[in-house]
Nucleic acid binder design. Sequence first.
DNA 1: ACCTGAACACCGTTCAAGT
DNA 2: ACCTGAACACCGTTCAAGT
Lengths: 247, 247
Amino acid sequence: MTQQETQRRTRLNRDLVLSTAVALADRTGFEGLTMRTLAQEFGVVPMALYKHVANKEDLLDGMVDIVFSEVAVPSGPDWKTAMRERSISMRQALVRHRWAVGFMESRMRPGPANLRHHNAVMACLRQAGFSFRTTVHAYSTLDSYTYGFLLQEKTLPFDTAEESGEVAAQKLAMQPAEMAAQFPYLIEVVMELGMSGYDYDVEFRVGLDLILDGIEKLRPDWVDAASVSASVPESVPGVGDVATTAD
Amino acid sequence: MTQQETQRRTRLNRDLVLSTAVALADRTGFEGLTMRTLAQEFGVVPMALYKHVANKEDLLDGMVDIVFSEVAVPSGPDWKTAMRERSISMRQALVRHRWAVGFMESRMRPGPANLRHHNAVMACLRQAGFSFRTTVHAYSTLDSYTYGFLLQEKTLPFDTAEESGEVAAQKLAMQPAEMAAQFPYLIEVVMELGMSGYDYDVEFRVGLDLILDGIEKLRPDWVDAASVSASVPESVPGVGDVATTAD
DNA sequence: ACCTGAACACCGTTCAAGT
DNA sequence: ACCTGAACACCGTTCAAGT
């Protein structure tokens, strides 16, 4: 309406279309983003968008690159701190843009921020002394964890710690009481999380640190501090080869 | 056609609708599954389906429960082996049903197989001596990793080890040569994976074992075998409290 | 009890115009 | 160079009928 009365406020361009699409998806969810609703944001007919993006796939490529541009690149002398902060930054970006998690690694045409980010992560680990193969293991494990955590955080039926118990209870309340007795360990989840809640932030950090500690042991020069006495001699040959607990 | 000539082969029922929907999604992808294409599988009009499923959301609920029913529940005396096999079974199910990964933990109405599975996983860890909180950490970390790995395996542009290098090269070939020089560590990925390939199976197991080893240390009675001499005395007090390497 | 047909309010996208 | 309008081939789903 007002867009039509006044002269067009701003001419469309690709960056404006992309950033508006991101904001619209943040606000209304991915299903709320259609070429038609996006056009409406500008007071423009849907077809006007096709001058600035090739199609919806191209629009999505650009949106994902905006998300990548918001993720902090690992930096600093300590690879572990750098990678921890990068993962936390990735989570924050994906909490802001919940629609994005399924698309981050599925783009056939990665944008510049995407390439820059992946290159920087590889650089961080390679320069920390990890072999190429170990770097691939580390990167794959960390990103799998981060994306998987957010996939669940995105879609799990509760958002706040207070809500978590209630919704879990509702889930089971739908089943008859006898069925609830059939799953005692789910009852425990309902009771315990209902009392103490579920904090996504600390939960994410626990798994993250567990994985970072595991990655540390993949380094060729890694020495288990707990396996040597408090005053450690200069060389402890074969210390990493001691058998682990049987399983 | 033939469905119309002969008398209706089989009357529709919910289970048949659900299993056919799973098979159709496996064959044609999630976008290929619509109420209309599904109806066509039976030679029936789309509206006929609504007698057996409430709507598409309800259809999806049932499909996800079929996937859960295919995942091996953890069993056996050793929690680590049991959980490893469960994760591998989960991956296999999600490789068969790539459309499912984003929906496994997002159902508002979990089906019976879903409840049974989650209860069994909680039981396995609790009975292995993990505290409730630690069990939640362990479960969250393992599932995040598994779902995240499959999210990438599902959407990453290459399927086979042989393809991986080529597609990665294509990705970068789209950029000008100077841009490729801007990302030396991505070039390494293209070169190395082009030569030796990328095996999803072994890659998954590396991260999985790394996480299982980390979870083992969260157990209250865990003792670091590498931190004690080969012949271990009955009690080693405080051995787990030795400071780790600085970071 | 189960299936049908027509219709409604949506999609992304093409094509031919308009300014 | 940029935006419009009408149209096409799709969606999920409602409603009123058929057998």
